[in-house]
Amino acid sequence: MYDNFANPWTIRLKWAYLLTVVLALLSPVMYTVYISFNEHGFGARIYDFTFDWYRIVLGDKLLVASLEWTLYLAVTAVAITIPMALLSAKFYKRSRRKVAFVALMLSPLFVPADIMGSSLLVFFKNLAGAFTWLGETLGVGWFEGWFDLGFLTAMIGQIIYTHPYAFIVILITMSRYRGQQTEAARACGATAWQAFWQVEFPQIRVGVLSSCAFVTILSFNEAVRTGLLKGGFDTFSNVLVAQMLNIGMSGESYAMAGIMSIVSVVVIGSILVITLLRSEHLSRKARAMAEPMMSS
C-alpha cells in the first residue's frame, strides 16, 4: 500500500522495471513461438505464417509416442505426488519443528538436476543389482528387473522432483484454513475423513488443483532426470533436447518448443488468474469479516 506522499513517478518506475524484467524473461520464448509459425524457419528474411511445422510434429509417430509417454508419466506423477504432498502439508501443520520440516521437504530442490539424476541412476543400478542377487539367493525370479531403468525409475525421479513444488503450493492454500473447522465438523459427528473431505478439502481445492497442473507441466518440461532414468522410452523433452543437440534447431524443433511453451503459459496463466481471482474473493471476505462486530 502506498501512502499519499509517494512520488507517482516512483510507482511508474517500479512498474516499468517489473514489465522490463518479465519481457526480458519471456521474449526468447515468444520469439521461439513466433519462429515456429514461419514457413521458412529460423533466420529467413521473409515470414510466411503456417501451421505446417505443427502438422509435421503431430504427424510424427515417434513424437506422438513420446508425447504419450510424457502424458503417462505426468498422470502417474500427479496421482502419486499430490496425495503425498497433501499428506506432507497436513503433517507440517501438526509438526512442532516447522523449519526443519520445510527444509527437509524442499531439500530435493537444492540438488542440481544432473546430480540428482545421476545419483538416482547409480542408486537404482545398485538396487537392481541387490534385487537380482536377492532373487538368485532365494532361488526365485520374482525380484528380477524391479529397478531396471524404465517407467518406474523415471516416475520415482519425477516424484522426487515435483513433490517439493506440490507441497509448497498446497501449503500456501492450507495456511488459510483454520483447524477449528475440522474440530467443529468432528463435533457435528463427522469422522476424520468426512471432516477432511467435506470441510477442509473444498477450501484447499484450488491449491490441490494448481499443484496437479504444476506437476503436469513440470513432467512435460523435465528432461535431465528423465533422460538419465527413463531406460527404453523417450519423453517429449528428451526428443526435443536430442534433436537440438544432434541436428540443431529445425522448424519441427521450434514447433515442439512452441507446443510446450503455449501449453505451459496457458496452464500457468490460468492458475495465476484463478488464484488472483480467488485471492481477491477471499480478501473481500476477510474485509467483510474484519468489520467491527456490532450488536445486531
Binding site: R178, Q180, Q181, E183, A184, R186, A190, T191, A192
Partner: peptide
C-alpha cells in the same frame, strides 16, 4: 473421539464452514 461422544461444541472463533450457507452449516450434522 469427538464424533462418538454425546457432545457438541461451540467455538470462540465461530468456526462456521465458509463454503456452506447458513442452512447447510446447520444441517451438516
Amino acid at each position: 473421539p469427538p464424533n462418538k461422544r454425546p457432545t457438541s461444541m461451540v467455538f470462540q472463533s465461530y468456526a462456521l464452514f465458509p463454503h456452506m450457507n447458513v442452512a447447510r452449516n446447520v444441517a451438516y450434522g
